[in-house]
Measured scan of single mutants.
Amino acid sequence: RPMNAFMVWAKDERKRLAQQNPDLHNAVLSKMLGKAWKELNAAEKRPFVEEAERLRVQHLRDHPNYK
């Protein structure tokens, strides 16, 4: 299953946050990521939305029978 825009963004952002906050549990990091994503405007999200769409199209090509 291809990543959605949030997952594309969160992949690198989670690493950055975890390095800055090594003692935080994953659940806390996830909440921080969700809050930060909601605060991004459409222009800030656009590159990740476009990458998610590219991944979706590639997934359809690679797995035409996937449901």
Score class of each variant (00 low, 15 high):
H25Q: 13
Y66L: 14
A27E: 15
F6T: 01
A5P: 08
G34L: 14
M32C: 05
V28S: 13
D62H: 13
R56C: 01
H63W: 08
F48A: 03
L40E: 02
Q58W: 03
M32D: 07
K35P: 04
Q19S: 11
N41A: 07
L29R: 02
L33K: 01
L33G: 03
N26C: 07
A36F: 04
K11H: 08
R56T: 05
A10Q: 03
M32Q: 11
R16Y: 02
D23G: 14
P47H: 07
F48W: 08
R46T: 05
M3A: 02
P22M: 02
D12Q: 11
R14E: 04
M7Q: 15
D62W: 08
M7E: 14
R16C: 04
V49W: 09
L40H: 03
N65W: 07
Y66P: 15
V8E: 01
A10C: 04
E44Q: 09
L29M: 12
P2L: 08
K38N: 11
W9T: 01
L24C: 10
K45H: 01
M7H: 15
W9R: 00
F48H: 02
V8C: 11
Y66G: 15
R46K: 03
K67E: 14
V49M: 07
A5M: 02
A18E: 06
M32A: 07
L60M: 11
R14P: 00
E39V: 06
N41L: 06
Q58D: 09
A36S: 08
M7D: 15
E53C: 07
L55V: 07
H25T: 15
L60C: 14
K15Q: 10
A27G: 09
E44N: 03
A27T: 11
N26T: 11
A52R: 00
M7G: 07
N21P: 01
L55T: 06
R46C: 09
E51R: 08
R14H: 04
L60P: 11
K67A: 15
R14W: 05
A52M: 00
L60F: 09
K11N: 03
V28F: 06
S30T: 13
S30A: 10
G34V: 15
K31Y: 05
A36G: 06
M32H: 13
R54V: 05
E44F: 03
Q19A: 15
A18C: 07
A27Y: 03
P2R: 10
R54W: 02
H63Y: 15
A36D: 05
W37E: 02
V28L: 08
K15H: 13
K15T: 05
Q20Y: 00
R54S: 05
N4R: 00
V57A: 12
A52F: 08
R61N: 12
P64K: 13
P47Y: 04
L24Q: 06
L33H: 09
L29D: 07
V57H: 15
N26D: 15
D12H: 06
K15I: 05
K31A: 08
V8T: 04
A52L: 00
R61E: 14
L17E: 00
N21V: 01
M32Y: 03
L24E: 05
Y66R: 15
A5I: 01
K67N: 12
D62N: 10
N65E: 13
M7R: 11
K45L: 00
D12W: 06
A27C: 07
E44H: 01
R46A: 11
Q19D: 11
R61L: 10
V57K: 11
N65I: 08
N41T: 15
R14F: 03
A27D: 15
L24H: 10
E50I: 09
E50S: 04
F48E: 09
D12V: 08
L24K: 09
V8M: 14
R56M: 08
K38H: 05
R16A: 04
M7Y: 12
Q20N: 09
H63P: 15
V49D: 04
A42C: 07
P64C: 14
G34W: 14
Y66Q: 15
R16G: 00
E39N: 02
D23M: 06
E50H: 09
W9A: 01
R14Q: 11
E39M: 09
P47C: 04
Y66I: 14
N4Q: 00
V49A: 10
L40T: 02
A42M: 09
H63L: 10
F6P: 03
S30L: 07
L17M: 15
K38R: 11
K38M: 09
L17V: 05
H59R: 11
R61F: 06
A43Y: 15
D12G: 06
K38Q: 12
V8H: 00
A18V: 13
A10R: 02
P22W: 00
K45C: 00
A5W: 00
A18M: 11
A43W: 06
N4K: 06
M3K: 04
L40R: 02
R56H: 09
H59N: 11
L24F: 06
Q20A: 13
N41S: 14
F6I: 00
H59K: 09
A42S: 12
D62T: 14
A5Q: 00
L33P: 03
K67G: 11
P2I: 06
D23E: 15
V8K: 04
K35N: 13
A52W: 01
L33V: 05
D12S: 10
R56Q: 09
E39K: 11
L17T: 01
K31W: 11
L40Y: 03
Q20I: 05
V28K: 14
L24G: 02
K15E: 07
A42L: 09
E39I: 07
N41Y: 02
A27F: 04
M7K: 15
Y66V: 15
A43M: 08
E39S: 12
P64I: 12
L40W: 03
H63T: 10
N26V: 10
L17A: 00
H59S: 13
N41C: 09
K15C: 02
V8L: 15
K11E: 09
L24P: 04
N26R: 11
E44S: 10
A18D: 03
L55D: 02
N26M: 10
E50G: 00
G34Q: 15
G34T: 15
R16D: 00
E50W: 05
A27N: 08
K31R: 11
Q19I: 10
V57Y: 09
N4P: 00
Q58H: 07
A52E: 07
H63M: 11
K38F: 06
F6Y: 09
E13Y: 15
L60N: 12
V8D: 03
L55H: 08
K38V: 06
A52S: 08
R16M: 10
M32L: 09
A36Y: 13
V8A: 06
A43N: 14
L33W: 00
E44P: 00
W9G: 02
A18I: 12
K67L: 15
D23L: 01
L60S: 13
L29P: 03
Y66D: 15
V28E: 15
K35G: 04
H63E: 14
K15L: 08
N21Q: 09
P2S: 11
E50N: 06
F48T: 01
V49E: 14
A27P: 09
E39G: 08
E51V: 09
A42P: 13
A10F: 06
R54Y: 04
G34M: 14
L17Q: 02
D12R: 08
K38W: 04
F6S: 02
P47T: 04
N21H: 15
K15F: 04
K38A: 09
F6Q: 04
E50R: 07
E50D: 12
A10V: 07
K38P: 05
L29H: 04
Y66T: 13
K11F: 01
K11I: 10
A43I: 04
F6D: 02
A43R: 10
Q58F: 03
P2V: 08
K15D: 05
A36N: 12
P47L: 03
E53A: 10
F48N: 01
R54E: 07
N65R: 13
Q19C: 01
N65A: 12
R54P: 01
R54T: 01
N65P: 14
Q20E: 12
L17H: 00
R14G: 07
N26L: 03
H59P: 07
K38T: 10
P2T: 12
R14V: 02
V57G: 10
R14A: 07
V28Q: 15
Q20M: 12
P64M: 13
S30Q: 15
R1Y: 14
R16Q: 01
R56S: 08
H25P: 15
M32R: 05
R56Y: 07
K31S: 05
H63V: 13
V49S: 04
P47V: 05
R1A: 04
N26Q: 13
P2A: 05
Q58C: 03
A5K: 00
D62P: 06
V28I: 13
K35Q: 14
K45N: 04
W37S: 07
Q19L: 12
N65K: 13
R14L: 04
A27K: 13
L40S: 04
N41V: 03
Q20S: 10
R56W: 07
Q20K: 14
N21S: 07
D62C: 09
H63S: 13
Q58E: 11
A52Y: 03
M3E: 09
N65H: 11
L17F: 08
L40G: 01
P2Q: 12
